[in-house]
């Protein structure tokens, strides 16, 4: 059971997070923390005129699951239109709640399937995604 949680690919994203850090001129920023554990995450995004994600970075402190999920998320939404991002967020949240994963774009994210067997850790996996959904809300509000 543990091996399904801490797959090699997850530990790899944890140790070598992709798109970690901050953007010089971010367009939208969202911070989110999990009050029950104190872990925190910040996601920064720049969109192009066509409303596609052209740059995304995250930073923060957290467990292997939250960091790996954030890292995979930044890869998965790179270049995507905000509407696609929204679908992906919903797809991932559904996936964590036990739904089958239908999207082709899930790639590495499939490795997080093991988290579903650890209900208390699902919040870790969705931390960055919740921050990202705040970003989308802000983008919509600005429109």
């Amino acid at each position: 059971m543990l091996d399904s949680l801490y797959q090699e690919i997850i530990l790899d994203h944890y140790r070598n997070p992709r798109n970690f850090g901050s953007i010089e001129n971010p367009q939208v920023i969202a911070r989110f923390d999990n009050p029950s554990c104190g872990d925190e995450i910040e996601v920064q995004v720049v969109l192009n005129d066509a409303q596609c994600v052209c740059e995304i970075k995250f930073q923060g402190r957290g467990c292997a699951i939250s960091q790996a999920s954030a890292s995979m998320m930044t890869e998965a939404i790179q270049g995507k239109h905000v509407d696609e991002v929204k679908t992906l967020i919903e797809g991932f949240q559904g996936f964590m709640m036990g739904q089958d994963c239908l999207e082709d774009d899930f790639d590495d994210l499939e490795a997080l399937e093991g988290v579903r067997k650890f209900p208390v850790r699902i919040k870790c996996a969705t931390l960055a995604w919740t921050a990202l959904s705040h970003i989308l809300k802000e983008v919509k509000a600005k429109e």
Binding site: Y6, D39, C63, A64, F118, R121
Partner: peptide, 12 residues
């Protein structure tokens, strides 16, 4: 090793 990961591993 983040404390949460540690707690999960020890729990097992």
């Amino acid at each position: 090793v983040h404390p949460h990961d540690l707690a999960t591993i020890l729990d097992q």
